[in-house]
């Protein structure tokens, strides 16, 4: 049976991990390769690297980092952040990234999804959607959640699937950073209405939240950052707990 995936997310700036990582036995907590290897060793199913470099030079350094991760890490990984062209995706995939994640650029120019799916295949196109509820309606937000749009989450998700995305990474801004659990109602609706895998993101604080997002939220994968980086939820224990709740995971 296909297992549910646990995905740590690392923020990358100028080729280094940022936003505090507190791992024991790590010589250099800023080194993405070392961190990625450690996560692969403890049973992470995939990794996501989010490039938050502001400059072209920083993005170039990230490309170099992708190459080193691919060289040394034996699980799949996705790279996202500021990707807006076929050429950029081509460069990332050539460096060994398995998938890319696009967000604002897809909203601004939805054809990008078609172009990427046709050229590289749907399997490597993840569309990330940031949304929050405004008057009870889920609205898509851009630029890391800072710019609201009038676009409905569910309509956009369907369009994204229709255009050839292989997967959706849905972050609820209402939940992100709260550690109060994932947006399970919206996730379940996405999962039922769509026919591609859905990754839940935003709100992980304890093990129960992962159980809930897989059971109630019907998510195919769950992504989190700080609870993993600070060792609050060790991945081996998390997976054992999930298994105890009859959620299929890779142990």
């Amino acid at each position: 049976m296909l297992t549910k995936r646990i995905i740590p997310c690392l923020d990358i700036k100028n080729g280094r991990t940022v936003k505090g990582v507190n791992f024991v036995d790590l010589r250099d907590a800023g080194d993405p390769v070392e961190l990625a290897k450690q996560y692969a060793d403890v049973g992470a199913d995939e990794l996501v690297f989010l490039d938050i470099s502001a400059t072209l030079e920083g993005r170039g350094t990230t490309l170099d980092m992708v190459l080193h991760v691919a060289e040394q890490v034996n699980i799949p990984f996705t790279v996202g952040g500021g990707i807006s062209s076929v050429e950029h995706v081509d460069a990332l995939l050539k460096c060994g990234a398995d998938k890319v994640s696009i967000n604002s650029s897809a909203v601004k120019r939805p054809e990008l999804i078609n172009e990427l799916a046709e050229k590289f295949g749907s399997q490597c196109v993840v569309v990330a959607i940031d949304a929050k509820q405004i008057d009870g309606n889920w609205k898509v937000h851009l630029a890391g959640g800072s710019i609201p749009t009038d676009i409905d989450l569910f309509q956009w998700a369907k369009e994204v699937e229709y255009r050839g995305a292989g997967e959706i990474l849905f972050t609820s801004m209402d939940h992100d950073g709260t550690k109060n659990g994932f947006a399970n109602e919206a996730l379940a609706k996405l999962s039922v209405e769509l026919n591609i895998p859905i990754i839940a993101s935003g709100g992980a604080g304890k093990v129960q939240h992962f159980i809930d997002t897989f059971k109630e939220g019907k998510a195919d994968a769950a992504l989190a950052a700080s609870v993993f980086h600070f060792g609050e939820i060790p991945i081996p224990e998390l997976k054992k707990e999930l298994k105890a709740y009859n959620i299929e995971v890779r142990l």
Binding site: M1, L2, D45, G166, N195, P197, R250
Partner: peptide, 12 residues
Amino acid sequence: NDLKVPQMGWNV
């Protein structure tokens, strides 16, 4: 079509 396609992830 009643399955999520692609199958993506770890299976045995």
